[in-house]
Computed example of a mutant assay.
Amino acid sequence: MHIDMPIHELEKYMGKNPKPADHEHYWERGLSELDELSLQYELVPADFQSNIADCYHLYFTGLGGARVHCKYVKPKNAQPNGPGLVIFHGYSGSSGEWTDKISFAAEGITVLVMDCRGQGGLSEDNLQVQGPTIRGHIIRGLEDANPDHLYYRNVFLDTVQTARILMSMDHVDCNRVGSYGYSQGGALATVCAALEPRIKELVAVYPFLSDYKRVWENMDISNSAYEEISYFFRVCDPNHLREEEIFEKLGYIDIQHLADRIKANTLWVTGLKDNVCPPSTQYAAYNKIKAKKEILLFHEFGHEHLYGLADKAFQMFRSL
C-alpha cells in the first residue's frame, strides 16, 4: 500500500512546481556574492571534550553580516589531506549533541555541523524582510518583492560557505568531503552538493523543501511539513489571486531545480509511507540528478528512524 504514487510512477515523476526563468542567474549571482566573503572563522573551545577529538564552537560571518554557528569536531589524530563531512539538521532543530559526531572523528573524519539561522541553534537570523512569517521559514520573505529576501536563500548559501571553510582547513583534502542530513538537513545536504561541486559523497535522507506545488495540490498539506504554505494563503492570499506568482517564487528555493548540478556520488533515502515529506516530492529531485546515484527505499516507513541507515551512511563516508 502506498500513500502517494506507485513506485513505477515515482520513478518517472519530474515534479510540477514551476522553475523561475532566471533561476540559474539567481544562484550564480548568489555564489558570486559568497565569493566576496572571507573564509575566516572564530574557534571557541567547547566545554565537552573527548579522547578522540577536539571540539569547538566555530563561528563565521555569512551573507548580510549574520553570525553563523557550527559545531566543529577535529580528530586528535587528524592526518594531512584527510576527509571531512558537513552535516545539516532537521527543521527547527540544531547541530545537536557532540557525541554523535565522535564516531566519524574516530575514523579520522573532520566534522562541521551548521546551525540554520534563527532555528534551534546559535546562528543569527538578521534578515529584514517585508511581510509576515506567520508560522515557519519556507514562507519567510515570500511577500517581499525581492526574491533575494527569501529566508532559505541565505541558508542555502550558508551551506556552501560551511563546506568551503571545511575544505580550506590545512588538514582536510577539499576533494574528500561529504554532505549529510535528514529532512531539512537532507535538503540542505543536497543544496550544498549542488552549489559546491567539490562535494564527493552525498547522503540525503527523506529531504524536505521540494516540489511545493505537488504537496499543495495533491497531498494533505495540513499534516505535512509544508503546512505553513496553507497558513500563508489563508492570511495573505485567501482567494489565490497570486497563486501562480507565489509558487514560481518558491521555485527559487525548491531543491529539485538545483539537483541537476550535483556531481557527488549520491545515496538518496526515502520512506514510502512518508506523509511529512511525501515520496513524490523527493523523487522530483532525485530523478533530476545526473551523477552516480542510488535510491534506498524503506517500504513500511515514514518520516522516522530508519533501521540500519546510520550504519550504511557511516560506511559510505568512511570511504571518502
Rank of each mutant, 00 (worst) to 15 (best):
L297A: 00
H89N: 08
R140T: 13
H171A: 07
A187Y: 02
Y151V: 09
S50H: 03
M316C: 00
M167Q: 15
A259K: 09
Y13I: 10
S222H: 12
A21T: 12
P238V: 14
V160E: 08
Y286N: 09
K200F: 08
I221P: 05
H57M: 04
T270A: 13
D170G: 12
A187W: 03
F301A: 11
R117L: 06
P278L: 06
K200P: 01
K273I: 11
C70T: 01
K312I: 15
N287A: 10
S123R: 01
A193R: 07
K74D: 06
G15L: 14
K16H: 03
Y212N: 06
I253V: 15
P6R: 06
R135D: 14
S224K: 08
T266A: 15
E228H: 02
K312D: 05
D220Y: 11
V44N: 06
V203I: 15
A193S: 15
Y283H: 09
A66C: 07
E33N: 10
N81P: 00
P132N: 08
Y283A: 12
Q315P: 00
K71W: 05
A313D: 08
A310Y: 04
E201G: 00
Y182E: 11
L63T: 02
I87L: 13
H171V: 07
I289F: 10
P238I: 14
C55W: 09
P279I: 12
V155Q: 04
S224E: 13
A106V: 01
L166Q: 09
K213M: 15
A285W: 11
G185Y: 06
C277M: 06
Q128F: 05
F232E: 07
V172H: 08
I138V: 11
E24L: 14
G186F: 10
G181T: 07
G118V: 07
C277S: 10
E300S: 04
Q49W: 12
D220C: 10
P147R: 03
F48E: 15
S224D: 11
R198L: 11
P279L: 13
H305V: 02
G308Q: 03
K76N: 08
Y206D: 01
M5N: 03
I199R: 04
I139Q: 07
D211S: 08
A163H: 05
F156K: 02
P75N: 04
F88S: 02
I3G: 00
K16Q: 15
D148P: 00
K16E: 15
I3W: 08
V111H: 02
S224W: 12
D22A: 07
L296K: 07
E294T: 14
N77H: 13
D125T: 02
G178P: 06
L250S: 12
L127E: 06
F232D: 05
Y252M: 09
